[in-house]
Design a protein around this nucleic acid. Structure first.
Length: 256
DNA sequence: TTCCATGTTCCGCA
DNA sequence: TTGCGGAACATGGA
């Protein structure tokens, strides 16, 4: 689930449910998800405080409480659950109990996620967020300029651009008819613009769909990630390969 | 039983 | 210096 659009959806969910309630207790059920901040510090910094503000940068969610920011990274299988009654979720790793009796659980089956504290929400070491209004085509061109290697690798490099993962990198290249292994240096100015615009359109569209609880459009590659499947755009054949260490799907017939 | 999985990091090699 | 392949991490589902 968690690439940029999913984390944005988590951020809105967090903001909708968990702001301005006093944190009565912080329960760390599995300390393996903790980052730098140990359990004692996490509890000390957050107990008795309220979350007042939520932000997102790339795949990181930040929630302000007291004088610190809680940072959540959802790894491969992270999720949030806000609930009032009933049992804690099966894969809950950290749970915030609020004074009004409700709970917010950070769930993560595979434990690749991170719960940590940060002085500020300026994610260090990360590139710009593609949906940041200050991030323009000229900035994107600048990022590509001194780079070599495959375009898909670049899109997935969080230190270059933060938020695109395996699925949305594939989707962006699928919709711009560009082969994932094409060298960055080989792309035309028109193709670079197409990638920039298409990537942002896809991210916004998926966020919008998540909000309305709807599936992504049927002609997205996302729903056809299977070797030998029929391409929903040109009727060609979906192929599978590996780029940047990740399983990559693309249309053998219309991506060049 | 075997393979695969939306992420990140670290190591070795070119 | 840059980039890439591979492995590791942990666990469940097909």
């Amino acid at each position: 689930m968690p690439e940029l659009p999913e984390v944005e959806t988590f951020a809105r969910y967090f903001a909708r449910h968990a702001l301005r309630q006093r944190i009565a207790r912080v329960r760390v059920l599995d300390a393996r998800v903790l980052g730098e901040a140990r359990k004692e510090r996490l509890v000390r910094e957050l107990r008795g405080k309220e979350f007042t503000q939520v932000r997102r940068h790339g795949k990181n969610l930040y929630a302000h409480a007291g004088s610190i920011w809680l940072r959540l990274h959802f790894g491969m299988t992270g999720d949030l659950a806000y609930y009032r009654d009933g049992d804690d979720p099966r894969f809950a790793r950290v749970i915030f109990d609020f004074e009004n009796g409700s709970h917010l659980a950070f769930e993560d089956m595979r434990l690749f996620g991170v719960v940590d504290l940060a002085r500020n929400p300026e994610a260090h070491g990360l590139g710009p967020d593609p949906l940041d209004p200050k991030f323009r085509l000229a900035d994107f061109r600048c990022l590509l300029e001194k780079r070599r290697g495959a375009i898909k690798s670049l899109l997935m490099s969080q230190d270059i651009i933060a938020g695109i993962g395996n699925l949305y990198a594939d989707e962006t290249l699928f919709q711009t008819s560009i082969h994932p292994k094409r060298a960055v240096s080989d792309l035309s100015a028109t193709e670079v613009r197409a990638i920039f615009q298409t990537m942002r359109r896809i991210l916004r569209e998926v966020i919008r769909r998540h909000e309305r609880n709807r599936e992504v459009p049927a002609n997205y590659l996302l729903l056809h990630r299977e070797e030998g499947a029929q391409c929903p755009r040109c009727g060609g054949t979906i192929a599978r390969t590996v780029v940047f260490g990740r399983t990559t799907y693309y249309c053998r017939d219309h991506q060049a």
